[in-house]
Structure formats: C-alpha cells, structure tokens
Amino acid sequence: MHSNRKNSAHFFINAATVAAELSVVLTEAKNISLEAMNAKALVARAGDNVRTFKPITDFMVELANDTIWLVKEINREALVLSRTSLAELHSSDAHNRFKRAQQKASLAPYGDTIDTIAAEASNTHHQQAMQLRRHMRKLFELLDEIESRMLAANVVTATSRLEAATAADSYQASLEGIVIKLEKAANRIKHIASKCRRSLER
C-alpha cells in the first residue's frame, strides 16, 4: 500500500517524461522510413544485381510504419497514464481525508451522515487505482512490442550485411550504408524504450 502511494506520487511525472522521450524515437522511426525509401530506390535502380535485397527493404518500410504507429500509441498511452495517476493521487487524497473525518467524528451525533460520501470516495479511489494498473499494463505491453520489433530489426541488419557483401561492388557501399543507419536507429530506439521502462518501474 505504501509503496503504491509513493509510486503514484512520482508516476504522473515519470509518465509525462516518457511521453517527452518518445519524441526522439519518433524521429528515429522517421529516419528508418527515409532509409527504407532510399533502399527501395536503390533496389529499383540496381534491378537483378541486388534482387535479394528487395524483401529487406519491404521489411524496413513495414518496420518504420509499425514503429511510428507504436510510438504514437505509446505517447498517447503515456499521457493517459500521467493523467490517470494524477487522478488516482487526488482520489487517494480525498479518500484519506474523508476517512480521517469519519474517525474524528465517530462520536458525533450526525457522524454517520459522512458514511455515504466516505464510501463513495473509497470506491472512486479503488476504481482509479484499478484504472491506473490497467493503463500501466497497457503501456508496458506497448513497450514490449516496440522492443521486440527492434530485436527483429537486429536480425534483419545481420542478414542484410551478408546480402550487401554478396552484392555487386558498385552497390556494396550504398547498401552497407543503409544497413548501418538502420542498425543505429534500431539501437537508439531500443535504448530509449528500455530507459522508459526503467523510469516507469521506478
């Protein structure tokens, strides 16, 4: 109970911070999308020389789109979470103040006229706490998803490296350049996602 209170007191700040951090991820995801377009153009130009690279560029486009969508989802969810945790904090405060009044008025002739409202405050708090847990779960799920996307990106960069190595000399450098940029973007996204996770778990 105590650690829960402490959590929610910082939580609305952390959740808002997460939303801010994610704007960086969005930029990176847009970089992936841009590189995917470059790769597509290259593949089209090179034709059969880099045929095996085609599915990889398709995957990059998909990855970029998914990531952008996920980041927007996470961002929205993080803001909802920030608002929910603040509401939870308020409802918990109200609940405690009504409870204290009830205790103090235990001998008052009309003390029992507080009971309904105190029960309502307790109920509201309970519901807010449940909402908070639900939104928290949802946000962690989304972070899981983005992290697993980035793991997939790692697999793809490894394959693309091999493919780039076997491509015709004139395309090798460009393809490697694309792979490196993809890898960098994926790693930064992974890093930020796990940072967000840590700040939410605090």
Partner: peptide, 11 residues
Amino acid sequence: FSAMLAAVVHH
C-alpha cells in the same frame, strides 16, 4: 477539511 467536516457533523 477533515477536522472541519468532523466538527460540523456534531451540529
């Protein structure tokens, strides 16, 4: 607030 609410319901 708590103290006030508690005091008021005495009356």
